[in-house]
């Protein structure tokens, strides 16, 4: 009984902070999402408009386009990071010359703030002065202009995200791989299992919780990507990289459309929860049942 009380006492500061800085703002955003509110309108006051904002969102082509672009971005970026991160994690499990230096360099992007990553990539990709368009033109005769080519801008944003976040995936998967017991692998080898079979039937199921946790983190991060993209393309060209995060920013801040912007935020949160739940039920829930 006493340990329970002590537990609550120890948790209390965290719960209080979470309530004031997490729960309360969220409730406020939900409240605002049911209002029409633009402080620069003729009537700057909040006006309750029921579910109008939610109805509007379904027919808003700009929002739907931003969701589509974001989903594409998440699929390409997170999947690539997962595959590349696993390959690198496996590489780091082995010894090779210069491993320590390579691992340090590989981890460096992680410590950079997204806005700096965006600036660096902007410098590298600016047409005619950036190093990437220069060498693409010099070596392959390819003209790269992220200001005019939507596919080039989208691909650049995806590559930038992969460059920035693959180290996180690598580190997480290294931790998972290191913690695996050797017995099942030795037994599988004795039974004559090949590398592919060992990967699919032993390694992957055993590191699945770590993979899912990593995907959760990256999925949530990717869905709210703003600063890197803002710096690199500003959401352009056109709306080619106007991800939901950028869309919400433009709706809420420059446009000061607080009511509708809050509605989009709530919907995006809902979509994120659904995506994570789907991931959980498809990857982890069957395993829990088996156990």
């Amino acid at each position: 009984m006493q340990s329970k009380r002590l537990g609550w006492i120890l948790l209390a500061p965290t719960l209080v902070i979470l309530f004031f800085f997490g729960v309360l703002p969220f409730i406020y955003v939900v409240y605002v999402s049911f209002h029409q509110w633009n402080p620069f309108a003729v009537n700057p006051e909040m006006v309750f408009n029921g579910a109008d904002n939610f109805r509007q969102i379904v027919f808003d082509p700009a929002f739907l386009k931003s969701v589509g672009v974001t989903v594409m971005f998440v699929i390409f970026a997170v999947l690539s990071e997962l595959i590349l991160g696993y390959v690198l994690a496996q590489a780091f499990m082995r010894d090779f010359p210069g491993k320590a230096i390579f691992r340090t360099i590989h981890t460096l992007p992680l410590i950079m703030a997204p806005i700096i990553v965006g600036s660096v990539w902007k410098l590298m990709t600016t047409p005619s002065i950036g190093i990437i368009p220069h060498f693409l033109d010099e070596w392959f005769g390819i003209t790269m202009n992220i200001g005019t080519s939507a596919p080039a801008a989208f691909a650049t944003v995806v590559i930038m995200d992969i460059w920035h976040w693959t180290p996180l995936v690598t580190l997480t998967l290294i931790a998972a791989l290191v913690s695996l017991p050797p017995d099942p692998f030795e037994q599988a080898q004795i039974d004559g299992a090949n590398k592919r079979q060992i990967f699919w039937h032993i390694t992957l199921p055993m590191i699945a919780p770590a993979v899912v946790a990593t995907v959760f983190i990256r999925l949530m991060d990717a869905l709210r990507t703003v600063d890197e993209v803002w710096m690199l393309t500003g959401g352009g060209p056109g709306s080619a990289t106007r991800f939901v995060g950028v869309h919400i920013f433009k709706e809420v801040f420059p446009k000061t459309n607080y009511g509708y912007g809050s509605t989009i935020s709530v919907i995006v949160l809902y979509l994120t929860i659904v995506a994570c739940w789907l991931l959980y039920v498809t990857m982890l829930a069957p395993r829990s049942k088996k156990d």
């Binding site: 902007k122 600016t126 047409p127 005619s128 202009n145 992220i146 200001g147």
Partner: peptide, 8 residues
Amino acid sequence: APPESPAS
């Protein structure tokens, strides 16, 4: 204009 113009 210079090629960087669409990003200027």
